[in-house]
Nucleic acid binder design. Structure first.
Lengths: 228, 228
DNA sequence: TACATATGTTACCGGTCAGTAACTAACGCA
DNA sequence: TGCGTTAGTTACTGACCGGTAACATATGTA
């Protein structure tokens, strides 16, 4: 089980950052790129331009750091979610599309390697790990929100549509680990979403949509093409 | 990073099995349940009712064992695939459904925790690992076959449909890690597949389907319900 | 000047990891 | 009987792991 782990990692000095923040940022990056179990405390501290002692002055344990990284990931994810949904208030179908466009361009973007939360779910199997509950509640909330949006959009079967969307979301992130670059099945993720929406949602999106004037089909079509 | 790993694992003596086979079987089970990195060579040997020395008489290294486990997984997967597809030769739409029914009941079954290949893709990030190529070629073949089936079924956009199906497949396996038991989004996986098929395939399945008499919509509907 | 806070340095602990050496015991077979 | 194969046993190596102790050095502030 050879690791390229010990190879010196370029320290992210980052000028005016406190040690704790540098460690935190470095840890998130290394965990995401190389995996949680593959990255040791020493490598994190060294990568942050400090040493192990300073690490343990800022964090109680590696497990706690991992959990905190996951919590930060969740917070950022919801910020992105809310930001992409906000401009389309009253148009739930468009909101769903916006969520996927955002996800496809970020968590599944060019240099991305999957979803940090999903990856952590694979690596942290012992249910005593403090990060476990973070992952669980996050995934449940994703499911709840997608089902809620499906309901608001007037889906014939909101639970089925919401779950189908979630499966696409999870699958899109996961395939990024094997199909790097721009060629994987993820290129057809958005079109799958639209197909499902067309199938489950009432035609002509009369639905519960209040501000129907906000529709911009040309823009969404362009975004779909941009992924390919 | 505490592990429940050292707790004695019940040895699978398995009477008349050779040491190598016992080690192999034990390794696959432990890797799948606890993760590859979380399981040490000692734990595998001990779990197989033998010791580390016998392990290294049968396998060159842990990495090689991992790769061989993945190869075995791939072989079994294609056996299952072929077996579920064979009874529906000439009815590609039904074949797609059968593949999903098979996958949902096995790799995503009751006590399952995701797809061994996908999980390995998360855990083995160094592209020098001998298992890496196994995963990559396997995923590519899954994609190729799904697109091929979509083409045979006469899909309006075979690449899009094939990829959408693959995303559902990947997502279904992945959600099993967080939503254990029977309650996760996977319960709506099959209905999502049918919806996509209805959307992409020509109505009344006239398509390239040769033996249209093989249609058994009642059976497939029942299977879809059984998952819920 | 004096003190508190934040950080760096070095050395260490006990444990686990993958992997090896050397020897011994059982079994099948000719 | 003798030999080869298969497997169990014990002890070991060197590296790395997460985590800690003790001490030294900055820097800012009062």
């Amino acid at each position: 089980m050879k690791e390229a782990r010990s190879t010196s990692v370029a320290p992210c000095a980052e000028g005016g950052m406190r040690v704790r923040d540098r460690i935190f940022r470095t840890a998130r990056e290394l965990f995401y790129r190389q995996g949680i179990r593959a990255v040791g405390v020493d490598a994190i501290a060294c990568g942050a331009g400090t040493n192990k002692m300073s690490f343990y002055r800022s964090f109680a344990s590696k497990d706690e750091l991992v959990a905190e990284c996951l919590r930060a990931q969740v917070t950022e994810y919801w910020e992105r979610w809310d930001a992409s949904v906000a401009p389309h208030a009253g148009d739930p179908r468009r909101q769903i599309e916006a969520v996927f466009e955002s996800s496809m361009s970020k968590s599944c973007g060019e240099d991305a390697c999957g979803c940090p939360l999903s990856n952590a779910a694979v690596e942290l199997r012992e249910d005593t790990h403090p990060g476990h509950e973070v992952i669980r509640s996050y995934k449940s909330e994703v499911r709840r929100r997608l089902r809620q949006l499906a309901r608001e959009a007037g889906a014939s079967d909101a639970e089925a549509l919401g779950d189908a969307l979630m499966l696409l979301l999870e699958g899109s992130a996961m395939t990024r680990l094997t199909f790097a670059g721009r060629g994987g099945p993820i290129v057809n993720s958005l079109s799958a979403v639209k197909t499902l929406l067309d199938a489950y949602l009432p035609a002509k999106r009369k639905a519960a949509s209040v501000a129907a004037k906000k529709n911009r089909p040309a823009r969404s079509a362009k975004a779909a093409e941009a992924v390919r």
